Simulated scan of single mutants.
Amino acid sequence: MDRNFQQALQLVLKSEGGWSENPADPGGATMKGVTLTNFRRYGKADATKADLRKISDEQIATVYRRFYWDAVAGAELPDGVDYAVFDFAVNSGPGRAAKYLQAACGVGVVQDGRIGPATLAAVRAKPSGVVIDTLCDARLSFLKRLPTWPTFGKGWQSRVVAVRIQAMMMATPAPAQPVPARPAAPPASPQPPAAVERNPFWAGLFAILKAILGRKSP
């Protein structure tokens, strides 16, 4: 759901970290997961690595929304599934994440990497927890087959575990909290009006009545 974009983005950014320029990473230089190529495409056409280092939060959100969230129809996916697919897209590309989601839907869904009405209907027809589990299992199997697994595998595995847990939490509605019943007030014993209570005659009469009513029958 689109209301989950900001939450999903913050979770993704925790996994992506800050500046990275690892020669073993085919994505090249990145800042908070944003590659220089994507920054030039959606932020600043002539951006340099120095510009990428100084990318603003607003520019980061624009890149993630346009290149990843919108590409996997995040606004139209069920709670939890949206985050699981989004994180997969950031880590391994929107096209691959979409195809794996389509595979998780089962027979009859074309795995073309484009999430349209048929895919959305198939996703909504399955319990979100099943889709999340199937997707995360397939994602981890894919990552283990990559030649860079020995270098990045430990971090990837931890990331998928965290995504699965968080996505499941997002997919599970919080139980309704029962409204506590107001305790019944104890019945008030009849009290004579203050003005009557101060009159000696009436005070004496009330004392006699109390004594009579308080007697037990034989």
Rank of each mutant, 00 (worst) to 15 (best):
P175K: 11
V179R: 15
P192K: 02
N199Q: 09
E197I: 01
A185F: 08
P147D: 11
W149F: 12
A181G: 12
P193C: 00
A195V: 11
A181N: 09
A195E: 13
P175V: 10
P186L: 08
V163S: 03
T148C: 08
P190N: 11
S158K: 14
I165F: 10
W156A: 01
M170L: 15
E197H: 07
P186W: 05
W156V: 04
P192Q: 09
P150K: 04
P173T: 11
P186M: 06
A176S: 13
A181E: 15
Q157W: 01
F152N: 02
R182M: 13
W149C: 03
A181S: 13
G155H: 05
V179L: 14
T148L: 15
R164N: 07
A181P: 04
A194G: 12
V161A: 14
W156P: 00
A174V: 14
A184P: 01
A174W: 05
R159L: 04
A185I: 11
A195Q: 09
T148V: 14
A167W: 02
P178R: 08
G155S: 06
A176D: 12
P193I: 00
G153F: 05
Q166C: 05
A167E: 05
P187Y: 02
A184W: 00
N199C: 08
A188I: 12
V160I: 15
T151P: 02
A181L: 14
T172A: 06
P147V: 05
E197G: 08
G153T: 05
P192G: 08
M168T: 10
P147N: 07
F152P: 01
P173Y: 10
A171S: 13
G153N: 05
A194Y: 00
G155A: 04
V161S: 12
R182A: 15
P178D: 09
P186I: 08
M168K: 14
P192S: 09
V163A: 10
T172E: 07
V163P: 02
V160Y: 02
P180H: 06
R182C: 07
P178Y: 10
Q157I: 00
M169G: 12
M170N: 13
P192V: 06
A167V: 02
R164G: 04
A181F: 05
Q157L: 02
P147R: 10
P180A: 10
P183H: 04
K154D: 12
S158Q: 14
Q191W: 02
S189A: 15
A195K: 04
A184S: 11
T148N: 10
Q166H: 13
T172K: 08
T172S: 11
R182F: 09
P180N: 05
M169A: 14
A195M: 03
P173Q: 08
P173I: 09
K154A: 15
T151F: 08
G155D: 04
P190G: 11
V163R: 01
V160D: 10
P183L: 07
P187G: 05
T151Y: 11
R198C: 00
A195R: 07
A195S: 12
P183S: 10
A184F: 00
A167I: 03
